[in-house]
Simulated scan of single mutants.
Amino acid sequence: MTELDEAAEPLVRQRLMPAGSWDWHIPTPFSQGWKVGDLVFVGGQLSADEHGNVIGRGDIELQTRNVFEAITRVLEEGGATWRDVVKLNTYYCCDEIGDAVQEFWEKMTRVRLEYLPTPGPVGTAIRVAGLMYNGFLIEADAIAVVGSGGAISRR
């Protein structure tokens, strides 16, 4: 064992399950998020009520807002804010073609930008054929570093 090993304290893990968040309709061990040390991992969030039912069927703006509000609740429970988010993954379903895809994307992105600071996190957006159940149009997950929002280097 090295001096570094002896000095290192085990990282504290905290399960994040904000009140009002949806839960699985069957028993599972999944969590809305985890805080491990200064990191907050937010699991995939959907536009769902407490029972997992779709909210805002067919409305990408409403679903995006609900997803980002759900992420906000998990972040807050872990002591983080959107300024602390360093990675954002977005999965979205769009059956539209042509100009309708662009309109769908723009509606979704306008809502997302209401939450994201400048400069924002690194991000990935993936168009998928489907999510957990029919009717869900967007799912997103995030990783944050608690307290990092005030110490942004602009290099």
Score class of each variant (00 low, 15 high):
A151F: 10
P121A: 02
F68R: 05
I126M: 07
M132Q: 11
K107S: 15
A140R: 05
G56T: 07
D99I: 06
T28H: 00
T72S: 14
A125Y: 09
R15M: 05
P29S: 13
V12G: 01
G33D: 00
D23Y: 09
N53F: 14
A7D: 09
C94D: 12
A125S: 14
V86F: 08
D5G: 13
P117A: 06
L46N: 12
G149H: 05
D5N: 09
G43L: 04
A142G: 03
P117C: 06
L4W: 10
T90P: 00
I60P: 04
V74G: 01
E9P: 00
S47H: 07
L75D: 03
D141C: 13
A8F: 14
Q102T: 14
H51F: 07
V146F: 04
L113C: 07
V40L: 01
R127M: 08
G135C: 07
D59K: 09
A100Y: 03
G37W: 04
A129L: 09
P119N: 05
V12R: 13
L16V: 04
D84P: 09
G52L: 10
D23E: 12
W82A: 04
V145N: 08
R83Y: 14
T109I: 03
T118N: 08
S47P: 08
L75A: 02
F68P: 05
